[in-house]
Amino acid sequence: MATALNPFVFIGCVELRQALDRHALDERELMDRLEDVPAGSIFYHTHGYFLRHRPLTTAYGNDFARWAAVEVRDQALAERLAVVDPFEFRDLENLREELVTIVHDHLRGLTTVPRAEPGGVFHFQQSHIVTVELGPRATTLAEFRDGLAGVDASAIYFHMVEARARLGRPSGDFVEWMRTSLGLAALAQRIERIDTFMTSLERVRARVLSLVDQALEAHAA
């Protein structure tokens, strides 16, 4: 199998949360704030959900849906927000527009604005990602496999989520490296099709490893 001239460098990350002075007490305020918070806050409450909910089920898909379900007890809005797959949007402004439209359309069908339970205020946040290089660099698919198996789950998040959503690498770093540095277009395509929505980082890791193992076995045979 090919050896890459550019080794793959696993990057782990730590999320430093920052509270914004923006809050929502009811669904109209949620809609208003969604329109004016920084794009980084939209990212934090949608894509960032996957970093913070690693081992447990990602039952609501994003913080807005969770708030609607748990704090406002508006299951209809929760369902409509939960189904929004943040990875389907070209950029965060399109994602913002979709979220605002969902809440707006939902409110149009109501006579009163649903309000959060006492203490259930939605606090908008954003995050700063602090990155660190992890583990040995990989120059072959086998080395990549070993590195991926042992690396902290935050590296899966960084290369599969952060890279795609905020760093302008729409295919993700794994796919890009396999395609351009190893020339493994078919494997890259299979990894690109992995559904990262409503799953855990560990499951994403397991799926990538499974596809890489198949490729290694096929090559050995």
Binding site: G12, V130, V132, L134, A153
Partner: peptide, 16 residues
Amino acid sequence: APPGVVDIILRLTERV
């Protein structure tokens, strides 16, 4: 600790 966390701490320490 969760696997990998101590390694992240060591790498972060190198930065600071």
